[in-house]
Each structure stands twice: as C-alpha cells, then as structure tokens.
Amino acid sequence: MRCSPKQIERVLKVHYTGLNYMITSCRQEDALTELERAVTQQHVIDKPIDQLVDDIKKREQLGSTEIYPGIMMPHINEPYVNQTTVVVTRFTQQAKLLGHSGIRAAIFVLTNGATDALAEFMHLLVDPRPFEYLLDRHHTNADVKNYFIKGGEN
C-alpha cells in the first residue's frame, strides 16, 4: 500500500516527550521518497531534500545501522534538522534498503544533537519487544504509535 502525505499527516504526527513522531507503511521503493516528503512538509528540514538522503547514505556506508534482524535505524545528526524526529516505516513486504536486504521496517532518526528524549527512546529499543511489536502485522500503525508513545506498553 502506497502511503500518501495526507495519510501520514492524519495518522502519525504525535509528540513523545519532545520527539516528533511519525509512523507509516510503504513499499520499498517509496521509503526514502516518502521520508523526504513527510519531513519537508512538516518542516523538519528546510534543506534541499537531496542532502538528507545523501547524508543518510553516507552514514550507512560507514557501518550498518541494522539494530535488530530486519530492522534498520538510519540516522543523521545535522544542524539543518529543525526538530528531533523519528519516522517509523513498515514495509509491506521484505525490502532492500540502503544496500541491506530482508528489511521489514526502518526507524529513521533525524536530529541536530543529543536530547534526553532521544536517549529515552534509545533506551526503549534495548528490549527486543518493541521490535517484535513493530514487526507483528496484527498491529496497526495506530497501535504501534500508541505503543511507542506509552514507552513500550500496550
């Protein structure tokens, strides 16, 4: 299912202790395009969009950001990011992303510096349960959003 910016806007923008939070479902070829569209529309970044994708790719070349089997966490820490934002993308089927295959979800993290909210979010990911929850197709995007907002509780 291809996701429209409208859908993203409707469902997903929530604030988790200072984190700008978005969750969406995508086909693999749309992942980076949708990421660009979502973040520019919400003014997370004002830079030319190519820069974001370039920086994400550069980071990935330095070392894999696969943080759980089938889940990647591409991230950038750049001054042009206006607000620390997490975009969770669930693929409708196993996808190839940034040179890695078998990817089922990506957690894009965009920030311009370390924040307590981000540290708290990372702490949540130490436990494998959020990943299992995210990968479970029985959970809707709204369920996942709610799960993360509550810091890992159903």
Binding site: R59, T65, M73, H75, T111, A114, M122
Partner: peptide
Amino acid sequence: MCASGVGTSKLLHAKVHQ
C-alpha cells in the same frame, strides 16, 4: 562511538551498560 554520536552509539550505550 558512532558516526553521529546520537544514533547507534546511544543504543549501544544502553545495551553495553546492560
């Protein structure tokens, strides 16, 4: 350490500490 100091390194920090 990681490239940005805010992504995988933060996650690694929590896992290493555990």
